[in-house]
Amino acid sequence: MQVLLIEDDSTLAEALAQTLKGEGFAVNHLGYGKLAIEAIKTDLPDIVILDLGLPDIDGTDVLRAIRKISVDLPVLVLTARTSLEDKVNGLDLGADDYLAKPFEVAELMARLRVFERRASTLKHSGLSIGDVTIDSIGHRVLVANETIELSRREFMLLKALMENAGRVQTRDGLESKLYSWGEEVASNTIEVHIHHLRKKLPNNFIQTLRGIGYIVKPR
């Protein structure tokens, strides 16, 4: 996985590059927004980590430029600002995720893993957690190498949970992922789908946080 790190603080960038390399990522580092945009134009990375506070141009402008070049390129925004407006802005402008400084390395890695898994369901078609493999191109799910039958919504639900393995998905969050605006959602629909999914999956594959949501833990 090719990561482009856009961060003007060279000490942080170096430390982060070392960490990411240790986790098996290939890292390129750039300290200026304009340079970064050029670099993305010539050679598209797999993941971008973008600090919003850059010396030459505003990070949000870089984000806009990236979105013009590629719609799918996963961008993780880092920022020292954490007001709500910033957060909303960042996500509105097309950041895939958002991390406030100072962040835990584990948190950063969890988010990058989600990107990685999402990329692999997109490009390489397969994503496995334990015995469960999801094949997004063939729209199949294999449990211990046996295909199981899932409805379209059950499949989407499982994909969302597995791509975000290790992170809790709230019921509201899953609902908005599954249903477009305006569609009527019965209050227990997600529970019903999860209930059906569980019967077809290994025990405890999907864990419930009562009243909060669901989580698939990476093995």
Binding site: E104, A106, E107, A110, G166, R167, V168, Q169, T170, R171, D172, G173, L209, R210, G211, I212, G213, I215, K217
Partner: peptide
């Protein structure tokens, strides 16, 4: 409450604590 717990779940998971939202 749901969002905050989901966001900070790592800390709770690390200590293998049970968390639930009732009512």
């Amino acid at each position: 409450v749901q969002n905050i717990i989901a966001k900070d779940y790592e800390q709770i998971a690390m200590k293998q604590q049970q968390i639930s939202l009732l009512g």
